[in-house]
Simulated scan of single mutants.
Amino acid sequence: MNYALRHACLVALMASAAVAQAAEPATATTAPATQPVLVIHGGAGVVRAGMSAQDERDARAALEQALRAGHRQLAAGKPAIDAVTAAITVLEDAPMFNAGRGAVFTHDGKNELDAAVMDGAGLRAGSVAGVHRVKNPILLARAVMEKSKHVMMVGDGAEAFAKDHDVTLVDPSYFRTEKRWQQLQQALKEEAAGQAHANLETAKHFGTVGAVALDAQGHLAAGTSTGGMTNKRYGRVGDAPIIGAGTYANARCAVSGTGWGEFYIRAVAAHEICARMQYAGQSPREAGEGVINRDIPKAGGDGGAIVLGADGRFALPFNTEGMYRGWIGADGKPHVALFKDDVLAEPGDPKAGG
């Protein structure tokens, strides 16, 4: 073999080896794509009393619609925050939930709406409280996160920001539903009769909505939206829009809470759940149940939460008679439940479809 030919062969072999060597580390270190998952809630405290068969069908249908809306975003490769806001927007538009269209009334006969979102990938967050004309508060919370240097805006200022950033505003009458109005009348009647706390049971039965999601890139996000508590006064704000109390997400965990907000605020419940996962190595179930089923009831509160980890494991703890809840995985099959005795299929169960 002459020199030129030997040289050409050597160059070819070296080039081939270089290509193989360059490709080998990428193949060895590239992890498989994360399986996306979305988990939602429509409030804890659900009771069968006063709920018709049609009410139940409507609630289940709305939960499934929200799950499918969020799943479409994940299936298209969109980030977790897109799935969260898509799902919550559906729940805000459904009058059976205490958020957006179905918000409860304050003592003064108004609707005061709160919402928050958090993107775990960069610890970005946006929050709004005490707004009266924002059709979808979750979208305004996201606008605060993405289009301002602030985290939280309230009242008239938040609505001015909404107008400046093309977030849909509506007449306050949009939020009036007869069911919620009658709940306020009952609460006012009880209050006048000296039963100042009797209305709390009614308020807790129709709670906050929320969502947590894990996208194909392994990023987490959380969001929560609420109308607060029936007959609330003095601009009361609960846990939903408070980052770390009712809403929190980081690289390891995403949480949305629902329940008696004062207790979630004092416990910094959403962050506490994530801290137990991150620093104590607890699973979503261990961390969620530790806070929701032990700490908060011990302090005198109640409610529930949805908890999602970066590995796709999730938990839906609650300590009330029920919680509107559901999840959807990569196969696009929604799973929903309302009452405590509803069996909600978990990933890996044959009935879950994968």
Rank of each mutant, 00 (worst) to 15 (best):
A345G: 01
I265G: 00
A222F: 03
V104P: 02
R60D: 00
Q182C: 08
V209Y: 06
L338M: 15
F97Q: 13
R6I: 12
I292V: 15
R72W: 08
W260Y: 14
L344Y: 06
A211L: 09
R124Q: 10
V90I: 12
F318E: 00
R233T: 11
L184Y: 06
F161L: 07
Q35K: 12
Q35M: 07
K333R: 14
D239I: 04
H219P: 06
A31K: 08
A61S: 15
T177M: 01
L10A: 13
R252G: 08
S225F: 02
G238E: 14
A216V: 12
G261H: 12
L113T: 09
G77C: 01
T202Y: 14
Q186D: 14
G329F: 03
A99C: 04
N136V: 06
W181P: 05
A129K: 09
Y324L: 11
Q282D: 12
G228A: 11
F263V: 02
D311R: 09
A20H: 00
T258V: 06
G228D: 09
K78S: 13
R276S: 09
N319S: 15
L139E: 13
R233G: 06
G329A: 03
A17I: 00
T168M: 07
A141N: 08
D93W: 01
P32F: 04
N319I: 06
Q182K: 11
A33I: 12
F206V: 15
V47Y: 05
T27M: 08
V170T: 12
R233V: 03
A196V: 12
G210E: 13
D108R: 12
A121K: 11
V209E: 02
A103V: 04
Y264D: 07
Q278I: 04
G235H: 07
A352Q: 01
Q73H: 14
M229R: 00
L338C: 08
A269F: 00
A129C: 02
E262M: 05
Y324A: 15
G309H: 08
F105V: 11
